[in-house]
Simulated assay, not measured.
Amino acid sequence: MKKFFFVYLIISLLSVSCIPNKDLVYLQKGNEKMNSIEINPSNTKPYRVQTNDVLSITIKALDQKLVDIFTPSTTGNQNQNSAQSLYFNGFTVDDHGNIRIPVLGELNVLGYTTEEIRTTIEKRLLDEYFNTQARLFVNVKMAGLSYTINGEIGSTGTQVIFKDRANIMEAIANSGDITFTGDRKNVQVIRKVPHGFETYYLDLTDADAVNSPAFYLQPNDYIYIKPLRQKSWGTGTTVMQSVGTIMTALSLITTTILLTRNL
Rank of each mutant, 00 (worst) to 15 (best):
residue 1 M to G: 14
residue 2 K to G: 13
residue 3 K to D: 14
residue 4 F to V: 14
residue 4 F to Y: 15
residue 4 F to M: 14
residue 5 F to S: 14
residue 7 V to G: 12
residue 7 V to I: 13
residue 8 Y to G: 15
residue 9 L to W: 13
residue 9 L to R: 12
residue 10 I to H: 07
residue 10 I to N: 10
residue 10 I to Y: 06
residue 13 L to R: 04
residue 15 S to M: 07
residue 17 S to N: 02
residue 19 I to M: 00
residue 27 L to G: 06
residue 32 E to A: 11
residue 33 K to H: 09
residue 34 M to Y: 14
residue 37 I to H: 11
residue 38 E to H: 12
residue 38 E to G: 10
residue 38 E to M: 10
residue 43 N to Y: 05
residue 45 K to R: 08
residue 51 T to K: 06
residue 52 N to A: 10
residue 53 D to V: 02
residue 54 V to T: 05
residue 55 L to W: 00
residue 56 S to A: 07
residue 56 S to E: 12
residue 58 T to D: 06
residue 58 T to C: 06
residue 61 A to C: 03
residue 65 K to M: 10
residue 69 I to A: 12
residue 73 S to T: 14
residue 74 T to D: 12
residue 74 T to W: 14
residue 76 G to M: 08
residue 80 Q to C: 14
residue 80 Q to N: 13
residue 85 S to Q: 04
residue 85 S to E: 03
residue 89 N to A: 02
residue 92 T to E: 02
residue 94 D to T: 02
residue 94 D to C: 02
residue 94 D to K: 04
residue 95 D to V: 12
residue 97 G to E: 03
residue 98 N to L: 04
residue 102 P to I: 02
residue 104 L to Y: 04
residue 105 G to L: 05
residue 112 Y to S: 14
residue 114 T to H: 01
residue 118 R to A: 13
residue 122 E to M: 09
residue 122 E to S: 06
residue 123 K to S: 05
residue 123 K to M: 06
residue 127 D to E: 08
residue 128 E to D: 10
residue 129 Y to E: 03
residue 134 A to C: 05
residue 134 A to V: 10
residue 135 R to Y: 09
residue 135 R to K: 11
residue 140 V to R: 10
residue 142 M to W: 07
residue 142 M to P: 13
residue 142 M to E: 11
residue 143 A to R: 01
residue 145 L to T: 01
residue 152 E to T: 03
residue 155 S to Y: 13
residue 157 G to N: 02
residue 158 T to E: 04
residue 161 I to N: 07
residue 161 I to G: 04
residue 162 F to Q: 09
residue 164 D to F: 01
residue 164 D to Y: 03
residue 169 M to A: 04
residue 169 M to Y: 03
residue 171 A to F: 00
residue 172 I to M: 04
residue 173 A to S: 10
residue 174 N to K: 09
residue 176 G to W: 00
residue 177 D to P: 03
residue 179 T to F: 08
residue 179 T to E: 10
residue 182 G to K: 02
residue 184 R to I: 08
residue 184 R to T: 06
residue 185 K to P: 12
residue 185 K to T: 11
residue 187 V to D: 01
residue 188 Q to N: 10
residue 189 V to C: 01
residue 192 K to F: 04
residue 195 H to S: 12
residue 198 E to N: 08
residue 201 Y to L: 11
residue 203 D to K: 02
residue 203 D to I: 08
residue 204 L to W: 00
residue 207 A to P: 14
residue 210 V to R: 05
residue 211 N to K: 00
residue 213 P to E: 01
residue 214 A to E: 00
residue 214 A to I: 01
residue 217 L to V: 04
residue 220 N to F: 08
residue 220 N to C: 05
residue 221 D to L: 00
residue 222 Y to I: 06
residue 224 Y to P: 12
residue 224 Y to W: 09
residue 225 I to G: 01
residue 227 P to A: 07
residue 229 R to W: 13
residue 231 K to R: 08
residue 233 W to T: 09
residue 235 T to N: 15
residue 237 T to W: 14
residue 238 T to P: 07
residue 240 M to F: 15
residue 242 S to C: 04
residue 243 V to Y: 00
residue 243 V to I: 07
residue 243 V to H: 02
residue 246 I to G: 06
residue 247 M to Y: 15
residue 254 T to E: 07
residue 254 T to S: 14
residue 254 T to A: 13
residue 255 T to W: 15
residue 258 L to W: 15
residue 259 L to C: 11
residue 259 L to R: 15
residue 260 T to L: 15
residue 260 T to P: 15
residue 260 T to N: 15
residue 263 L to A: 15
